[in-house]
Design a protein around this nucleic acid. Structure first.
Ligand code: MN
Ligand code: MN
Ligand code: ZN
Ligand code: ZN
Lengths: 149, 149
DNA sequence: TTCTTTTTGGATAATCATTCTCTAAACATG
DNA sequence: CATGTTTAGAGAATGATTATCCAAAAAGAA
């Protein structure tokens, strides 16, 4: 069983547990989220699904995303113009956004994050329940392309 | 000269440098930003100013905020529903948002932030130009109020 | 100063992501 | 199959933000 299939089953399981009807639209969205490497927004999900399901509505995308968010199976990333979604790593983790190519990259695998969280809790007596960390700049491949040009 | 007056003069200076007209509306907004301890959003600024300047428009607030953002004198904090603004610390710094009382607190004075930035640049070969870090949770005073209750 | 030309502040209208509402379809039960 | 209940999802509404455009202010000519 591949990673994305495990993810897909997990999404379905949570929807079922909640007693939601597993319609073809919802199944297709869950699959798309589980196979998406990037971090699509609602419109991108909509446009992709519309080719196979011409009658699907944007509101259905939003409502199902909200369900999956509430079940902790999808992470919402609030950006300036809209929200993007991560269906593979539904826990808080840093994201790197390239201002050249627009890519939204995962920035987990940083050790110093736990230290930062601890320092915040200690310094400010603040009890953290969740965080959102976004870095804006230029990604590795864009930097390399620039250098070799 | 108080801190907020220094800040006020700095805002005015940048608007002048840019060749902007220093209207009463703009002066009032600059002053309000410089004396605000919290992190108001556009509507809050609007409502506050409207008592003294009944003809001011929300669009004027937004346009002046954009000017000051471009001049690096105001930091915009993108949150889920709207943007909030910091006219006193216009450089990126962490914010702590309390889900009980709604306060948006400054979370500068954390040493581990530079380590995190360095780790991101090294691990991912990403060139950071700016970041936004928001912690959600419960603030110190709300925790204390809860304990003593 | 007075008239003309140019700039731009800011009120109003438009936009667009997101949410609300309500109908029609799916489900359960007898 | 009939009848009552739930809910998916299409279309309408909302609300923060942005674009447009007119009037007022500045600049320049005479
Ligand atoms: Mn991610
Ligand atoms: Mn701040
Ligand atoms: Zn890039
Ligand atoms: Zn609080």
């Amino acid at each position: 069983m591949t990673d994305s299939e495990i993810r897909y089953q997990s999404l379905l399981h949570k929807l079922q547990q909640r007693g939601c009807r597993l319609t073809s639209h919802r199944l297709a969205l869950a699959r798309l989220l589980s196979i998406s490497e990037g971090h699509p927004n609602a419109s991108q999900l909509y446009e992709t699904l519309r080719t196979q399901f011409p009658t699907i509505s944007l509101a259905t995308i939003y409502k199902t995303l909200t369900l999956l968010k509430e079940e902790g199976e999808v992470l919402e990333i609030d950006l300036h113009s809209d929200s993007h979604y991560d269906g593979n790593k539904p826990y808080p983790h840093p994201h790197l956004i390239c201002s050249r190519c627009g890519a939204i990259l995962d920035g987990d695998s940083v050790r110093s994050l736990t230290a930062l969280n601890q320092e915040i809790e200690q310094t400010y007596g603040f009890h953290i329940s969740r965080y959102q960390l976004v870095f804006y700049g230029v990604c590795q491949s864009c930097l390399q392309a620039e250098r070799s040009a």
